[in-house]
């Protein structure tokens, strides 16, 4: 039955699309024994651990990473939150030990100014350059065709169209 087959195919396509969009359900690196009993605190801990780089794998957050050190840092983070640290203080606690590099979004300060403003500056320079070049070389209107040119066009197009 072709209709049923089509439906099955469609279902697969939809399933793939849904998984792709939702990112599937990622295997949780956070183990049950790490979780805090207070759901609000645990939610903050999850959020913050997505902001922290795993130093072993380097392009994963400690929330994603299965590395031992990532687990240790998740525990330290929860320990700080339970001790009453606010989000900033908890991140600063870990950054004090591992440097700004551990923060996945680097803080804005003198040494990171180029990093933050660079793309915008380059974009503006590009636009500026385009405007500047266009101003310098205005598009001049072409001189009108001469009578000889007009006649040549006429003969060429006439030959093209032919007898029809």
């Amino acid at each position: 039955m072709p209709a049923a087959k089509l439906h099955a195919k469609l279902a697969v396509v939809v399933l793939i699309f849904v998984i792709g969009v939702s990112g599937g359900s990622p295997a949780l690196a956070v183990r049950p024994d790490e979780r805090l009993s207070d759901p609000a605190l645990e939610a903050r801990a999850r959020n913050l651990s997505q902001e922290l780089r795993c130093l072993v794998c380097q392009n994963q957050s400690i929330d994603d990473s299965d590395a031992d050190l990532a687990r240790d840092l998740r525990l330290v983070l929860r320990e700080r939150l339970q001790a009453g640290d606010d989000d900033r203080a908890a991140l600063a606690y870990i950054a004090a030990r591992y440097g700004d590099y551990v923060l996945l979004s680097p803080p804005i300060k003198a040494s990171t100014l180029i990093l933050w403003t660079g793309p915008g500056v380059i974009l503006l320079l590009g636009f500026g350059g385009i405007i500047w070049v266009r101003r310098r070389r205005p598009v001049t209107a072409l001189p009108p065709l001469s009578a000889a040119e007009q006649a040549r066009i006429k003969s060429l197009t006439a030959a093209d169209q032919g007898p029809q």
Partner: peptide, 13 residues
Amino acid sequence: RDGRVAIDWGVYG
């Protein structure tokens, strides 16, 4: 044993 002091030193491996 639990690597907690190493974290205070900034050890990552």
